[in-house]
Computed example of a mutant assay.
Amino acid sequence: MSDTALTPTAAASGASATERFLTDKTSLPTEGTDTARVNTLATEVLTAVHDVIRRHRVTYDEYNALKAWLIAVGQDGEWPLFLDVWIEHVVEEVAGAAREGSKGTIEGPYYVPGAPALPSTAVLPMRENEPGTPLLFQGQVTGVSGEPLGGALLEMWQADDDGLYAQFAPGLPEWNLRGSVVADAEGRFAVTTVEPAPYQIPTDGSCGRLIAAAGWHAWRPAHLHLKVSAPGYEPLTTQLYFRGGEHIQDDVASAVKPELVLDPRPASGGGNEVVYDFVLDPAS
């Protein structure tokens, strides 16, 4: 980190992620719940926990430590972080199992809707002399039958060269390295940005205490986030990684897939460039 004053705290990041989730997901249905489905899922989760307790002969000291930790996760506002890092990748695996087009992966806790609209050839909003290696990211959005999806929307967000996200770390402009790119009539796009850096998830809160106690690491590989959508097609949420990057093989969030690894090449004008096409499934 080039400036420790800019280091996001777990409490601040957790509060931001929780607020965003509650704001964005309030339209999720809560009525008409299938009680049989809830009964099945809740019973099997609890049974799995009971089995762990019995197999490992969990002590009262360990149980009380778990209870205190679960309470602290809520107090720290870190449930979005915990769930997105250690649980979401399996939910996404199940949800995307039937997808014929491009692979998806986790959204993570740092998505913010409403990023500035940009044309098909654009520069992501960034500071003057934004640190990092320049990157030209280009490609085309099509359907599974090869039809170009003109006007497809690519919402992009990423960490900067210090591994920080705008709106979740202090000192960054509101929409730094965030934008909503509208593809041209042939579904093509060309976005200039900078290569992001690997980063650690915040470790000064409850998730960090779990990581330390278990002897894990907290690192995510460098990646670009995207949500790609077009009318009549299933939206795609994904992340793209960089070949040879640190922690590709041991991502703390277990979100890397071979199909999502980019292979940038030197660009003629300096920096790197990469081509990556997105294929969307028709809406069901």
Rank of each mutant, 00 (worst) to 15 (best):
L153V: 15
P131E: 09
V85G: 01
G163K: 10
G151E: 04
P131D: 09
D84Q: 13
D161N: 14
V141H: 03
F82W: 12
G96A: 14
P125H: 05
D161S: 15
N129A: 15
G114W: 07
D76E: 05
L164H: 11
L164T: 03
G146W: 08
R127A: 11
A122H: 04
A98E: 13
L118P: 05
R99A: 15
E78L: 08
P113D: 05
K67L: 12
G132T: 02
G171R: 11
Y110F: 15
P125R: 12
L154K: 04
I71G: 04
A98G: 05
W79T: 07
P109R: 02
V123F: 06
P113M: 12
P173T: 07
Q158I: 03
W79N: 06
R99H: 05
E78W: 04
Q158L: 11
E155Y: 06
W69K: 05
L172P: 01
N129Y: 08
T142M: 07
V112G: 12
G146K: 13
E88R: 00
V141G: 07
E128T: 14
S145H: 13
D84K: 10
A152Y: 01
L136A: 12
T142E: 00
A95H: 05
P173Y: 04
H89D: 07
H89P: 03
A72M: 04
P119N: 12
V144W: 11
L118M: 14
L136N: 02
G132C: 09
G171W: 12
A152T: 04
W86R: 04
P80H: 03
A166W: 03
T105P: 04
V90M: 10
R127V: 13
P148D: 02
S120W: 10
P170K: 14
T142S: 15
G96M: 11
Q140S: 00
V112S: 14
Q140D: 02
E130K: 06
D161M: 01
G74T: 07
L118F: 10
A68E: 04
L124G: 10
G163Y: 03
V94R: 12
L118R: 13
F137V: 08
M156K: 07
G139R: 10
T121C: 11
A68Q: 10
P125Y: 06
N129F: 07
Y165V: 00
V112W: 12
P148V: 10
G104T: 03
Q138W: 02
P170E: 10
K67C: 03
V123N: 09
V91E: 14
S120C: 11
L153M: 09
Y111G: 05
G74S: 13
W157N: 06
F137S: 00
E100M: 15
G114A: 12
R99E: 03
